[in-house]
């Protein structure tokens, strides 16, 4: 299979064509532009190696996310970054190439944080390995983590080694009725205390808090925080993770703002807050320039996530940072075989 992919890449390079790497295609909605002929990784599937006591799983990039997660669940483990499933076809390669992380991100880390190693085909079809199957590895530049979130614009990921974690022994959910200012403050204060916080979300006047860990720790936190335990618990977090809550499902335009967690209410439109305040979703058709300015003032950046004119929705990079991106793209993919413009209109 890898040889066939390498052939495709070499042929594309020879013909001056561009390839669009695609796993399940569940994130085709995202990004500035979809350019080039589809290179489908779905056929390159399967778990290569998994030893729960190593806390490492090595999988082919086309493996369905559900397959990876159910295999881990059998052994009481999980992908702690909780990648969203935007469709049945979501693949592990797509999860890492997008770099999208779910509700547990603020507590556990991002998709890139859990990448230990990657086997990739470069823009000339060479089969390369970076990182490894071990927890700690500082030999060479950290290209396997760099590739996470690059949306197939630098290399074709064929295999990934990911760190996995045990599923928490106990889990509980609490709800608090409060306003946005209070919720942002509460999330940040609690995140600064030794509490087993694994996710927070503020939407429609309710602050949702998920506690995960040892039974005793969860029980003690329930006592300490008060609030109410809602009847349906996991359903909420699953819908949050997969963006099927009403605010996501009905939004024709969805903005994503990644900012300093303590920034107060933004007043830009209907919104949902995650990651202890560091991630704000806004379901409104807004002027890109003003959103970008607001995000920048708040120490972060904004992206037009769904709907609207995508190119205008990408936050511009500072000129020297953009120039570095362009040099890196040229260094790793001089001919543009892996497509440009998916994550940014200027590279």
């Amino acid at each position: 299979m890898i040889e066939a992919f390498a052939d495709t890449i070499r042929r594309a390079a020879a013909d001056g064509k561009t390839l669009r790497i695609r796993g399940g295609g569940s994130k085709d909605f995202y990004g500035v532009a979809l350019e080039g002929d589809v290179l489908d990784t779905g056929s390159h599937a399967g778990i290569v190696d998994y030893d729960p006591s190593e806390l490492v799983i090595t999988v082919r990039s086309g493996t369905p996310l559900t397959e990876v997660e159910s295999k881990l669940a059998e052994c009481g483990q999980m992908l702690a970054f909780e990648p969203p499933h935007f469709g049945a076809g979501s693949t592990i390669g797509g999860a890492v190439a997008s770099g999208f992380s779910g509700p547990r991100r603020a507590a556990a880390g991002s998709a890139r944080d859990f990448v230990l190693g990657a086997r990739v085909l470069d823009a000339t079809g060479r089969d390369l390995s970076f990182g490894g199957q071990v927890m700690k590895n500082v030999a060479g530049y950290d290209l396997s983590r760099f590739i996470a979130g690059s949306f197939g614009t630098l290399a074709l990921i064929t295999e990934l080694s990911l760190k996995v974690l045990p599923r928490p022994v106990a889990e509980a959910t609490l709800c608090f009725e409060m306003d946005e200012t209070q919720a942002i403050d509460a999330m940040n204060r609690w995140a600064g205390q030794p509490l087993p916080l694994s996710a927070t979300c503020f939407v429609d006047g309710i602050l949702w808090v998920r506690l995960s860990g040892a039974q005793a720790a969860v029980d003690a936190a329930l006592q300490k925080l008060g609030g109410e335990q809602p009847p349906e618990r996991t359903a909420f977090w699953t819908s949050l993770r997969n963006q099927s809550l009403p605010i996501f499902a009905t939004a024709s335009t969805l903005w994503r703002l990644s900012i300093r967690s303590t920034v107060g209410p933004l007043d830009l439109g209907p919104q949902l807050i995650e990651w202890n305040g560091a991630l704000r979703w806004i379901a409104a058709d807004l002027d890109p320039e003003s959103v970008h300015r607001a995000a920048q003032t708040a120490g972060g950046h904004a992206t037009l996530y769904r709907g609207g004119a995508k190119a205008a929705g990408i936050q511009r990079l500072a000129p020297p940072v953009l120039a570095l991106h362009q040099r890196l793209k040229r260094a790793l993919d001089p001919q543009g075989v892996f497509g440009r413009h998916r994550i940014h209109p200027e590279f």
Partner: peptide, 20 residues
């Protein structure tokens, strides 16, 4: 040249240059 990599949020625009 002075560059800012990463951000005050949990991720940044563009490629993950901090990983490099």
């Amino acid at each position: 040249e002075a560059l800012e990599l990463g951000g005050e949020g949990l991720d940044a625009a563009g490629l993950d240059l901090m990983a490099l």
